[in-house]
Design a protein around this nucleic acid. Structure first.
Lengths: 223, 223
DNA sequence: TTTTTAAAAGGTGTTTTTACCTTTTTTTTG
DNA sequence: CAAAAAAAAGGTAAAAACACCTTTTAAAAA
């Protein structure tokens, strides 16, 4: 690495911030340029200067690490976010990384490992130890598990076809032409779909499709 | 485990199927009850009897492992799917597990590890070695990376508010009431939103919102 | 300091959706 | 086999969305 990498430390405990700063001082390619007490504080300071990496605690007043991660990922897509927290449960790890965190460490982690994490995050875009990786995988599996879907309306084959075409932004008439049916028939299917999915209108149907992964993949991949 | 666990082996190579069956015969709590050449073959045989675990190859004629995983996960949500394949690239691992696979192994894996994977999958719902876990995490990070979003239309504040209310399945009039504006105004905003997002109608707007995570979280969590 | 963009609202007209209810035929399932 | 569900289609009517284009005011950006 040619130039120094700029770090931000976000934690409500001044001791932790100063501790990290002191420990990182030994590593000449890194420099703590921002200290913030909480997410809101950080966001204000980011208007002036942007670091390469943010070390972020979860438990903070005003704006916690979860909200902060979301906000940062939205506003600064290239910024690397490393969560450093005292407690780490699986669900939290998963949801944070899903929200855009690039690494997850606990506060008792050795400074060398933290630096290693920073370096790898800058290089590869992520750093995960075995524990975190397992949590991630468990999270994905969990999200695929048969949800308590107590009463799924279960659409018929034709209804599903129509739903998919609705998701492709087609009108009744267009769908009728595609399926070689009367527009009135599509009308009926549309009504049934809205009724069965408990939607109020096609927008609700679209979200139902996304929730249940019934739409074509293209709808969510193209930009 | 009280009763025997039923296994299905799906691979176009008869040698592999018989090999696995023979090796698993030593483990008294497991029994191979189905052998199939490919996904379609498996799906037909599943109509008669359902196993607890499927050992699935990827490269297969007629219906490959990826399609099969999707189909199985949709039709048999509780079924555990273990991918056993000769080649394993990261993207494939990620997409397969995302599609509902519960484990990913390579064919040169020791039979003891395969049995361990079967057991853990039945118990915890997943089994992943370090390599696979890393691939998973890399996949998630990848999907969060700043996409080439070359030209984002950037909606104005008000437009975003209206979009969110559209996502909540509100009509123009309702939105007008909520924001204390004329329905005409909302009409204009809706038009602008459709135009800026390149959508054809509100369904397209809904998908745009999901792609760009602009909707409220509730829309995708409630069922 | 122009110029542009955002916010708010209206006119007018067409197309589409939504709501409610009915009917026939075929398939599937208890 | 009888009953239920799915597929297909229609009538009618109101409500909502979609299209296009215009205007005023205020704020922001060039």
């Amino acid at each position: 690495m040619k130039f120094k990498k700029a770090i931000a430390v976000v934690d409500d405990e001044i001791l932790f911030r100063k501790g990290i700063k002191g420990l990182l001082a030994e590593f000449k390619h890194l420099e703590v340029i921002i200290e913030a007490e909480h997410g809101k504080d950080l966001l204000e300071k980011l208007r002036v200067q942007q670091p390469d990496v943010v070390l972020l605690d979860i438990q903070m007043p005003v704006m916690n690490g979860i909200e902060t991660t979301e906000a940062l990922r939205k506003r600064y897509p290239k910024l690397k976010i490393i969560i450093i927290t005292s407690y780490g449960n699986k669900e939290l790890m998963f949801s944070l990384i899903e929200k855009g965190a690039n690494a997850f460490l606990t506060k008792n982690t050795d400074i060398k490992v933290i630096v290693k994490a920073i370096n790898q995050v800058l290089e590869k875009g992520y750093y995960f130890d075995y524990e975190t990786s397992q949590a991630m995988v468990a999270g994905i599996i969990e999200s695929n598990k048969p949800k308590p879907s107590f009463k799924k309306p279960k659409l018929s084959g034709r209804e599903l076809e129509v739903l998919k075409l609705i998701c492709k932004e087609h009108t009744n008439r267009e769908i009728a032409d595609i399926l070689c049916l009367s527009p009135r028939t599509i009308d009926t299917y549309r009504e049934n779909i809205i009724q069965k999915t408990g939607a109020k209108n096609v927008v609700g149907v679209a979200f139902y499709a996304v929730r249940n992964k019934l739409h074509d993949f293209a709808e969510l991949t193209r930009h």
